[in-house]
C-alpha cells in the first residue's frame, strides 16, 4: 500500500515533463501499437491451423499478451502505483475465479442434459419452418 500525500513522480515541468504522472514517449506507443497489429494478424492466421483443443488456448494466450501490452504501455501501468496494478490484476482474478467455478459446475452436469432442440426452438421450427432439416428431437443423454 502506498503512502498518501507523496508525489508520485518527480515534478519537473520546466524540462517538458508533466506536473504529475509519467510521460510515455511516442516511440514506445507506436511500437506497442505495431506489436498489437502484428499479433492481430497472427491470431487470425492461427485460426486456420488445426491444433485441436489448443486453438482456443492459443487464441486466448495471444489475447492475454495483447491485453497485457495495452495495460502496460497504453494505460501506463508499468509506471503506475502498484496498488492500481493490484486492482487490475485482482479484478481479473475474480473473473477467472467465477468462470472456473461456473464452468466446473457446467461440466459436471453436462452428461445429464438433454440434447436436441430445446422445446421452444422445436415449437418455433414446427410452426414456421417445418421443412428445415434441423429437426433433431429432444432426447436425454443419460436417462
Amino acid at each position: 500500500m502506498s503512502q498518501p500525500n507523496q508525489p508520485s513522480h518527480a515534478t519537473d515541468v520546466a524540462a517538458g515533463h508533466p506536473l504529475v504522472g509519467h510521460l510515455v514517449g511516442i516511440k514506445t506507443l507506436v511500437t506497442t501499437a505495431s506489436a498489437l497489429l502484428f499479433l492481430t494478424i497472427v491470431t487470425v492466421i492461427v485460426r486456420y491451423i488445426d491444433i485441436g483443443e489448443f486453438n482456443i488456448w492459443v487464441a486466448i494466450g495471444i489475447a492475454v499478451i495483447k491485453a497485457g501490452l495495452v495495460a502496460t504501455f497504453f494505460m501506463h501501468l508499468k509506471w503506475d502505483r502498484p496498488f492500481n496494478v493490484l486492482v487490475f490484476m485482482g479484478c481479473s482474478l475474480f473473473v477467472i475465479l467465477m468462470m472456473a467455478f461456473c464452468v466446473l459446475d457446467t461440466s459436471q452436469y453436462r452428461a445429464t442434459q438433454y440434447t436436441g432442440n430445446a422445446t421452444l426452438v422445436q415449437e418455433t421450427l414446427d410452426a414456421h419452418a417445418p421443412g428445415a432439416p434441423i429437426t433433431q428431437k429432444r432426447t436425454e443423454i443419460n436417462p
Binding site: M98, F101, C102, D105, T106, Y109, A118, T119, L120, V121
Partner: peptide, 17 residues
C-alpha cells in the same frame, strides 16, 4: 434471448450463479 431460459436451451442455474 434465451441465455437463462431452459426452453430456449439456456441455463437457469447460470442465472443463480
Amino acid at each position: 434471448i434465451g441465455i437463462f431460459n431452459p426452453s430456449m436451451g439456456g441455463d437457469p442455474v447460470l442465472y443463480q450463479h
